[in-house]
């Protein structure tokens, strides 16, 4: 089947989609956007977290066909006011919240969503919001630092227009 949706601000189409394919597979293997990650593919790890019509979802739990006519924003679509890094991406980089980086794309989207909802979260708020995102490298301490630090930065005005940066990774 054919699936048409807006991805990171661009209208995209994929042909020959098998109905059993997930949104994660659609993004990674059909649209050339491997930013969302395939760590468990059963909704336990949060590595594939993307926005679907503005709500964070595990892309592995959404059928590719369900994205028809909808708006998807993945980590590749997040960007700062100058077209550079979003504040969350910047904070993760500076704080040392990135080691192997496999959990990072999902966490960036989840934190981006948290800070859009709660501008100055408490530590307990942060932990509750990120409980669905597994990280095996950092022990979460630097991730906590990164979220606190990102919350203290001005929000990225351009995050709503993700098309300001090309979507393809390679």
């Amino acid at each position: 089947m054919r699936v048409s949706c807006r991805v990171n601000g661009e209208q995209r189409e994929a042909d020959g989609v098998w109905p059993g394919e997930s949104l994660l597979y659609l993004l990674r293997e059909r649209l050339g956007l491997p930013g969302a990650k395939n760590a468990c593919e059963q909704g336990e790890c949060g590595s594939c977290t993307v926005y679907l019509d503005g709500l964070p979802v595990c892309a592995c739990l959404v059928a590719g066909g369900q994205a028809q006519g909808r708006e998807v924003v993945a980590v590749e679509g997040l960007t700062g006011p100058d077209g550079g890094l979003d504040r969350v991406q910047h904070a993760f980089l500076q704080a040392g919240a990135v080691q192997c980086g496999f959990c990072t794309p999902g966490l960036i989207v989840a934190v981006h969503d948290l800070l859009a909802r709660v501008s100055t979260p408490t530590d307990a708020d942060i932990r509750e919001a990120l409980a669905g995102n597994l990280c095996r490298c950092t022990g979460y301490e630097k991730i906590m630092d990164a979220v606190r630090s990102a919350a203290a930065m001005p929000p990225s005005t351009a995050a709503a227009c993700p098309a300001s940066r090309p979507g393809g990774p390679r």
Partner: peptide, 23 residues
């Protein structure tokens, strides 16, 4: 020192090519 990791920007933007991302 603790310089920013050279692969860090790629990792926070989803551009870093993990072994499962190759095609």
């Amino acid at each position: 020192d603790s310089p920013v990791r050279p692969d860090g920007t790629l990792k926070v933007t989803g551009q870093f090519a993990f072994s499962s991302d190759l095609s």
